[in-house]
Design a protein around this nucleic acid. Structure first.
Lengths: 209, 209
DNA sequence: GTCAACTCATACACGCTCGTATGACTTGTA
DNA sequence: TACAAGTCATACGAGCGTGTATGAGTTGAC
């Protein structure tokens, strides 16, 4: 074990203890990031973008890409993981205290922006990654949303005659619908949160049922 | 013109006046139908099904398929057109008179079953056919739904603070979500209409706003 | 029964993408 | 500065899907 001990490099042991990701040349880290970003935009432009397309989008050689990601699924996985991690940073800041309905609205608005950004990537992932893997990546975000909905139900803010699962999918589905409308140019991104809210709030409300 | 006048064949001039589709051997018509059906089921099983897969599913040779449909898009187009035409036969029977909300519920229930059946095919079409073509095919069904929603708004049954377009997409999106849940085995098809309704009715309701 | 229509197996050309390999070159780092 | 790490152009093999071609065989229609 520990055969690569030539460079102890105590400089940066931040984050996970893994050595795989951290101690790489600054150069390489930049390229990795460029490729990850390019994956999102390239697939956004063309859902069937090849690895060559993505490398071109990143302004890097195809071989460089292969140097960072051995296979296509591995790249997609990494790109999605990255997107979700960035999303987590945003979502974890959303205050969930207080009125459940208002908290839900805040969470949905933030979530929607993320969905809008990585929609195409998600679609690609759904075709190339096992479904269990994708669910696994969304675990945190989904758990947050679910427990908020559950709290709302318990407090009588949200209706309890429907399973939380269905409220959850409805939420996803309406956000995705808005994102699709934006993509098609039929909806102004600015207006989306309001429209999403206009549907979900009365749909989930406990009043008058 | 009229170079193929060898067989006047006054037997069946039913439907459109076109001669292209009608006067084919019974044999060929059967095969065409088999292929169309196979397209739906094959793509349902595997969204990336090749023409070879589809031919196999139909129990026919690949060349026979090419005899009926010159290219892949042409096949997808034909299959979707066929699905939609069959759907029209169902939807046109749904009574739209009387209370707009109830009519909407009836229409949604019927529509959902169709969506559930041809969801995979639609996804394939979205990847291989121009968006305008797909919208064109859905024109009738969409117009029916739209005018019902508009009537509901005018009568004060549906809220008027949202554009009909958004009500329309919401409807689509929730139906699709249910279909997806069914596909994933997380939802019983029997329960779907009830759940869809439970979301859409309060979401679209004009009361309490 | 005759003929055209249709089916189907086989085969080929083409283009595309993935993944691998090689080697020369450039850049970061200590 | 010296060496490892990383980049990149080029090239190759394999696999797959599409669309075309050919020809022999089968089936429906009149």
């Amino acid at each position: 074990m520990n055969s690569r001990a030539t460079t102890p490099n105590p400089r940066l042991s931040s984050g996970s203890g893994r050595r795989g990701a951290a101690n790489k040349r600054a150069d390489a880290q930049r390229n990795r990031a460029k490729i990850l970003a390019a994956t999102v935009t390239a697939i956004r432009k063309n859902p069937d973008a090849s690895l060559a397309d993505i490398a071109a989008e990143a302004g890097t050689g195809r071989q460089t890409l292969y140097g960072h990601f051995r296979t296509r699924p591995e790249l997609i996985d990494a790109a999605l993981t990255d997107s979700i991690e960035r999303g987590e940073e945003v979502l974890s800041q959303v205050p969930l205290h207080g009125d459940a309905v208002e908290a839900f609205q805040r969470l949905v608005t933030s979530s929607w922006m993320l969905v809008d950004r990585s929609r195409a990537l998600m679609a690609a992932a759904q075709r190339e990654l096992p479904a269990t893997r994708i669910r696994e990546m969304h675990e945190k975000a989904e758990a947050r949303m679910r427990s908020l909905l559950e709290r709302g139900q318990a407090e009588g803010a949200f209706r309890s005659d429907l399973p939380v699962t269905w409220l959850l999918t409805t939420t996803h589905v309406v956000m995705n619908g808005a994102a699709e409308e934006v993509r098609a140019g039929r909806l102004d991104p600015e207006d989306a949160p309001k429209l999403i809210d206009a549907i979900l709030t009365p749909a989930f409300s406990a009043t008058q049922r």
